[in-house]
């Protein structure tokens, strides 16, 4: 047997995956993954988001992060996520810098660490990172200067925690705070989905009654049931009596990887139509992290129908991201900042 106590080494090893997210007082320092966060922490983020939801509707701007500089560091294309992060930062009065790395430094051969060092030198307070490789946000959090917070805006297939939080926020607004009585079905390409992984963690932490995943075997990662979900290959039984149906985007390139025969067959078997949705509870809500492929994973009549909350998700995304930003930057803010916040 390997002796656990003898196994410590440099930067990352020995620290649990999620523990680096919290500072010594248990406050949120980074948000890298939902995994390992407490029920209290998740609830507290959602509660804080609730206070910001009002800001969005009427006041539009609060001075919580005045003087802070937030960098949107996107190594992968994104419209909604980057825009809502930017809006959230601006509504908190922070300065925002958008950097699209795929067209700048790394294509000139600069390493990720060099890019970080340069940005650090510009006195930034927060990096919001999206990258195609799983583990990038953790890598960055392990290597940045101690005063910088890192928010994961999507790393490979690993995690997209703010998306999962805004989804929980949407569910809570529509179905109430007691997740124990809810049955949630996630349908589609779970293999490649960081959103689904983060949603599954969040739903489990909030003690959701039942979590189902629905997909053909080619789109399910191995041993996914060990994440605390039940597996269905048939959408009819998968969404039966569900309170929440979450549809995932199907990328066109999945046909090339021999994961599926065609979009048509996928829609026939897994596409959410009005007819199919009848299997869910009559008051079930339909969610989608976007962007939607109409006629591939979801029918327009459902996407635009009365049970769809897809656009609400986008709106709530701003409040949730404001909550996460204020909590992470707030956890190591000056006393001056704290006073301002409490007043």
């Amino acid at each position: 047997m390997v002796n656990k106590a003898t196994r410590k080494t440099d930067n990352m090893i020995g620290k649990d995956l999620w523990n680096i997210q919290l500072d010594n007082n248990g406050n949120l320092k980074h948000l890298l993954t939902i995994e390992g966060l407490s029920t209290e922490m998740l609830t507290s983020i959602l509660d804080t988001a609730e206070t910001f939801a009002g800001v969005n509707e009427s006041v539009k701007k609060v001075p919580l992060l005045r003087g802070k500089t937030i960098v949107n560091l996107f190594f992968e294309a994104s419209t909604r996520t980057r825009t809502t992060f930017e809006l959230a930062a601006k509504r908190l009065s922070a300065d925002v810098l958008n950097i699209n790395i795929s067209t700048s430094a790394t294509s000139k051969g600069e390493s990720l660490l060099d890019t970080l060092r340069n940005l650090e030198a510009m006195q930034c307070d927060m990096f919001i990172v999206r990258h195609e490789s799983s583990g990038t946000a953790h890598f960055i959090a392990n290597h940045v200067a101690p005063h910088i917070s890192v928010l994961n805006a999507g790393d490979g297939r690993h995690a997209h925690p703010t998306q999962a939080l805004l989804d929980m926020f949407t569910i809570r607004r529509n179905k109430g705070a007691d997740f124990g009585k809810l049955r949630v079905a996630i349908v589609g390409d779970l293999l490649h989905s960081r959103v689904a992984r983060s949603q599954i963690h969040a739903l489990n932490i909030l003690n959701t009654g039942e979590i189902r995943v629905v997909a053909p075997k080619t789109l399910l990662p191995k041993d996914i049931e060990q994440m605390g979900v039940s597996v269905y290959h048939d959408i009819q039984s998968g969404i039966k009596d569900a309170d929440v149906v979450i549809m995932l985007r199907l990328q066109k390139e999945r046909m090339q990887g021999a994961l599926l025969p065609s979009e048509q067959e996928y829609f026939q078997l897994y596409g959410l139509t009005e007819e199919r949705l009848k299997a869910a509870k009559p008051d079930a809500i339909v969610m989608h992290p976007g962007p939607i492929n109409r006629g591939v994973e979801i029918d327009s009549t459902v996407a635009d129908g009365p049970q769809s909350v897809i656009l609400n998700q986008v709106t709530y995304g701003i409040a949730v991201r404001m909550a996460v930003m204020s909590m992470t930057l707030g956890s190591h803010s000056t006393s001056d900042d704290k006073q301002r916040k409490s007043s």
Binding site: S134, R157, H158, P221, K222, D223, I224, Q226
Partner: peptide, 15 residues
């Protein structure tokens, strides 16, 4: 390795 850890971490698996 294709298994619970690669699934959780979203790492491209080797079966």
């Amino acid at each position: 390795h294709e298994g619970p850890v690669s699934t959780r971490l979203g790492l491209p698996p080797i079966p």
